[in-house]
């Protein structure tokens, strides 16, 4: 008996190992080890050819602190964080509340609002590149035909507005995604609560404020963290539509890091930038989770 149990244990242990090894080999080799290597590379001046040899300590990080472009990019990243939160969450919540109510054609509308999420970011980026195109672009043509020729501009060519033009597209793409998250959460709220509210004579606004929004807040918090981390590491649409230009007006840390690394081949500096991005992303989401916890404790 004892012998048999031992044998089974051995078999079980073997199975556990067999089932975990492939996952962890991939994960450790291509995710975990590179993070540490990235930190190590950031202490070198290195053009990427051969192994890194010129150890310069923290010099790359010192340079970052004095790098105007980095601060510009960080500022743009923070704009992306705020505009994404303000431009995606309220409309997404609003649409989710309407579409979970009694409304005609709601499944059709949900399908349409989610559709931008299906299309690849690259296709989306070029689609809007041609919407914003100054001469033949859809937007300027529309403005002209409405007699608003004064409002036309190079939406991606004008440094004062390019970032917001791209941000509109980011919101366009993600509102449907967050809307669906919120719809799932609202549909999970027990109907009895709404019935009780109705019997008590609550207006629909009161019901939303007292029942839907409070019960939505855990999902909202998750959504905000997703959006913040996503905004800090954002790359795709900016790279496709403006590659950070004009005049760095849409430069983000991720695009700057990419240019430094793979266009100027300053791989040590690129590694340092990547590590800063990592720290900022983790830091901001921890900060947000901490703040919302304090907020909750205070309101309780």
């Amino acid at each position: 008996m004892k012998h048999k149990r031992l044998a089974m244990n051995k078999d079980t242990r073997l199975t556990i190992a067999l089932f975990l090894i492939p996952t962890f080999v991939f994960y450790v080799v291509l995710v975990v080890v590179p993070i540490f290597q990235s930190v190590r590379f950031s202490f070198y001046r290195w053009d990427g050819l051969g192994p890194p040899t010129r150890f310069i300590g923290l010099a790359n990080y010192k340079e970052i602190l004095h790098d105007q472009v980095f601060w510009k990019a960080l500022k743009n990243n923070l704009i992306v964080v705020f505009v994404s939160l303000l431009g995606q969450m309220p409309p997404a919540i609003f649409l989710a509340i309407i579409l979970t109510g009694k409304i005609k054609g709601k499944s059709f509308l949900r399908t349409v609002y989610f559709a931008p999420q299906i299309i690849s970011t690259v296709a989306t980026g070029y689609l809007f590149y041609y919407v914003y195109e100054p001469t033949f672009g859809l937007l300027n043509q529309l403005l002209r035909s409405l007699g608003m020729g004064w409002a036309t501009r190079g939406w991606l060519g004008d440094p004062s507005i390019a970032l917001y033009s791209v941000l509109f597209v980011i919101c366009w793409k993600y509102i449907g995604f967050y809307m669906v998250l919120f719809m799932a959460s609202i549909e999970g709220i027990p109907q009895e609560l709404y019935e009780a509210a109705r019997i008590d004579g609550c207006t629909s606004w009161q019901t939303v404020r007292k029942i839907t929004l409070p019960l939505l807040s855990p999902t909202l918090k998750t959504a905000c963290v997703l959006s913040i981390v996503g905004s800090i590491k954002y790359f795709d649409l900016i790279w496709v539509m403006t590659t950070g230009g004009p005049a760095r007006s849409t430069e983000l840390i991720a695009t700057y890091m990419y240019k430094k690394t793979f266009l100027s081949w300053q791989m040590g500096y690129g590694s340092a930038l990547a590590f800063c991005l990592f720290v900022i992303a983790v830091g901001l989401s921890l900060l947000f989770m901490g703040l919302s916890k304090i907020n909750r404790d205070v309101s309780e």
Partner: peptide
Amino acid sequence: TILIVGMMIPVQVTLIPNFVF
């Protein structure tokens, strides 16, 4: 936990080592 932390990691921080690798 070690594995799940991977969901939070921005790909950029691994881009250069993976490129070299």
